[in-house]
Computed example of a mutant assay.
Amino acid sequence: MILNNPFAILAESVPSILLQSFVILMVGLVIIGTLVDIIHKKNVKYFFNNAKKAKLSATKELSAGEKITVIAKTVATDIATTAELGAGKRRIAHVLGMYGTILFWIASAVMIFCYTSSDQITPTVWPIMWHVGAIMTCVGGYWFWLFLRVDVLAEAYPWYRIIKADLFVLALLACATFGLAWSYTQSLNLENRWDDKVFLTLYIVSNLILFGGVYWSKFAHMFYKPGAAIQKNLAEADGSRDNLPPPADAPEQFGLGIKRETPKHY
């Protein structure tokens, strides 16, 4: 199973061009959904206006080298390792899910566009990357969904409580889960059995929901958050601090209540 390219097997009954067109359609849906989100919610406009306003209160002019250093540090810490979450389970779950998804998507694109012809042999690295990525996504995603979500961990809501903001993570988990199930049942060579076809259908539907629901989910946040993190660190470096006051030069006083339980409220 883990060494097989499921898309190459699928291409024996479905033209490769349809598989490739589906991927292009998904990319198009992401672009359209993100643009609609930008226009309707005006996130980018707010971001640039806030950056322009903060620049006026800067106390230091950053050189090009200093800006590059800040950006590189932000990419290496806040973005690549989600440092904003601090050390702990939540950060590990996010890193597993993030890199698992990246591997899953990259391997999918490579196998669909490069290795679905009957005369091409798929290097084993790509199916392995696809399956490992899906497994990492499931481990990180289900760990987060069942145990680490704020409304489950800190607010005592049941794990099965679903709101619109959960669309992204649930659709992503569905893609990885049904993808693995489809690959497994496909590898069993069930001939005309229904099993692999059902999971393939669910895999397709979950992809449509994931990439077609960008406007209603948190998918677009993947594009906003890196920019916001870079702007935040640049603002701290030039002294503007996004128009926020500097930290108070005084000891932190939380009262005795802080000792009653380990802080876990976000």
Score class of each variant (00 low, 15 high):
Asn243Ile: 13
Asp238Arg: 03
Glu191Lys: 15
Ala220His: 14
Val132Glu: 02
Phe199Met: 03
Ser240Thr: 10
Phe144Pro: 09
Thr177Asn: 02
Tyr203Met: 08
Gly133Ala: 04
Ala176Cys: 11
Trp216Ala: 13
Gly227Thr: 02
Tyr203Pro: 02
Ala165Glu: 11
Trp216Gly: 04
Gly179Tyr: 01
Ala134Lys: 03
Met136Cys: 07
Thr185Trp: 14
Leu202Lys: 10
Tyr142Trp: 15
Met136Phe: 11
Thr177His: 01
Tyr203Gln: 04
Lys232Trp: 09
Leu167Gly: 07
Ile135Gly: 01
His131Thr: 01
Ile209Gln: 06
Met136Tyr: 01
Ile162Arg: 04
Trp130Ala: 00
Tyr224Lys: 12
Arg161Cys: 12
Tyr184Asp: 01
Ala171Gly: 00
Phe144Ser: 15
Arg161Phe: 13
Asn189Tyr: 00
Arg149Gly: 12
Cys175His: 03
Leu172Glu: 15
Asp249Glu: 15
Gly213Ala: 06
Leu244Arg: 13
Ala156Trp: 12
Ala220Tyr: 13
Asp249Asn: 15
Ser206Phe: 03
Phe199Gln: 06
Ala220Ser: 15
Ile230Asn: 04
Phe211Tyr: 15
Gly179Gln: 01
Asn243His: 10
Gln231Thr: 06
Trp216Phe: 15
Arg149Thr: 11
Gln231Phe: 09
Val205Asp: 06
Ile204Met: 09
Ile204Phe: 11
